[in-house]
Amino acid sequence: MIVCLAVVGHQNNPLYIQSFTDADDALKLHHIVHCSLDVIDERVNNPKKSSPTINEAFLGLLYPTENYKAYGYLTNTKVKFILVTTDLDVRDADVRSFFRRFHTAYVDAVSNPFHIPGKKITSKTFAERVSTIVKSFGLSSAS
């Protein structure tokens, strides 16, 4: 289950952050997201030269904690997506396809002429779309 999703701008300013749990643990999840930012910076600035997918948007597993796994994605426009999940056996392909769909939703949201670049995304349509994508996460693998 995805518990938290964040979109962070190129100056590490939060553009969208949403947790999907009933419990009152938003702060804890935001902390994980915050920590992931450093991991992303590290990955991007010191890439492993041997890796074939050196400049791929999908950054893979950022760091596992005891209960959570954080995945990252960095767009060409230096916008970071961070996903925090409680599933401990997640397939990379699922996360990849999730980020792809999320990226499409994000692009549609920021293409709105009334959206101000660099400001938080407040669109309700975007929020609804995101929650649909979040709900469908991992379902394809089960079937």
Binding site: T53, N55, T75, N76, T77, H103, T104, V107, V110
Partner: peptide
């Protein structure tokens, strides 16, 4: 500027990052 800003977001979606 705004048009270019938004279009580049869309058109770079499927590309690896520029070095």
């Amino acid at each position: 500027f705004q048009v270019g800003h938004q279009l580049s977001e869309r058109y770079t979606m499927d590309r690896p990052r520029f070095t």
